[in-house]
Simulated assay, not measured.
Amino acid sequence: MTLERWHRITEWPLTGAAALFLVAYAWEVIADLSGPSLIVAETVIWLTWGVFLVDYFVCLWLAPNRWRWFYTHLFDLAIVVLPMLRPLRLLRLVTILSVLQRTAGAAFRGRVVVYVVGAGALLVFTAALAALDAERHAPGAHINTFARAVWWAFETISTVGYGDFTPVTEVGRLVAVGLMIGGIAMLGIVTATLASWIVERVAQTEIDTRAATRGQIKALSAQVSELRELLERKSA
């Protein structure tokens, strides 16, 4: 078993685990669970964490140079370790974003649109969950319903910030910072991709124009040759 093969095998199962975590976490936050339902949701959340933990150590074991893999994948370690803290659980959803990005590829055609729309919707939804989870029971909190949390998330990711709802906890403000950075990053992706597409179109137009010009020159040269031959026959 190689590391590349392991990645191919586990890519979608890990995405499924992240999606299962999202369902359990959304259920827990939106329904404000307690009792047996809370135990079920927490069990699912911790089981998905175990899946990511196993994946991390298997990757470390399969890496040709384990020390190099370790210090070049510190972000993967953070995704595994930091979600043990409740406010940082949503780091597991980075797996979904990474799969979306690989699926999108470098092409502009509808794939990037799918990636941006999917990543944007995921960021808004998860940020709304995280903000509601952090703010709901805080003194003087404005974000105390899921509808308000979603509205706040849309305001923040678009960097509009009307200010009608603002986080009052440190965790809520940290979520806001991450959401704003995510919104700016997605705007950068769209802008860069559009610019790349325009450059490609301009370059293709120039290539087509040059090809047409070469064809015209060849046709003109052929006509000149025919006229020369005709003149030579007449003069002979």
Rank of each mutant, 00 (worst) to 15 (best):
L3A: 08
E4S: 13
E4V: 12
R5A: 14
R8V: 14
T10A: 13
A17D: 02
F21H: 10
V23N: 04
A24Q: 08
A24W: 05
A26D: 02
I30G: 08
A31V: 03
D32L: 03
S34I: 08
I39L: 09
V40C: 02
V40F: 06
E42Q: 15
T43V: 00
I45D: 04
L47T: 14
T48Y: 12
F52Q: 03
F52V: 01
V54S: 02
F57S: 01
V58H: 04
C59D: 07
W61L: 10
N65S: 08
R68M: 10
D76I: 01
D76E: 10
I79R: 12
P83M: 01
P83H: 03
M84Y: 11
L85D: 11
P87T: 04
R92T: 13
V94L: 10
I96V: 15
L97T: 11
L97M: 10
V99I: 06
V99A: 13
V99K: 07
R102G: 13
T103G: 14
A104I: 05
G110A: 12
G110Y: 14
V113D: 15
V117P: 08
V117C: 03
A121C: 13
L122V: 11
F125I: 00
T126M: 02
D133C: 00
A134C: 03
A134N: 03
A138C: 03
P139Y: 03
A141R: 00
A141E: 07
I143E: 00
I143M: 02
N144P: 00
F146P: 10
A149V: 06
V150A: 04
W152A: 08
W152M: 06
E155S: 07
V160C: 01
G163A: 02
V168Y: 00
V168D: 00
T169L: 05
E170K: 08
V171G: 00
L174E: 04
A176C: 07
A176K: 03
V177T: 05
G178D: 05
L179P: 01
M180D: 01
M180C: 09
G183K: 01
A185H: 08
V190Y: 00
V190E: 00
T193R: 14
L194E: 07
L194V: 12
W197D: 13
I198W: 10
V199K: 15
E200W: 07
E200M: 11
V202I: 11
V202M: 13
D208C: 04
D208M: 06
T209Y: 07
T209L: 14
A212M: 10
A212V: 13
T213I: 11
R214T: 14
R214W: 15
Q216W: 06
A222K: 14
Q223W: 03
V224Y: 09
S225E: 15
S225D: 15
R228M: 13
E229T: 03
L231T: 10
E232D: 12
E232R: 15
R233H: 10
K234T: 13
A236V: 09
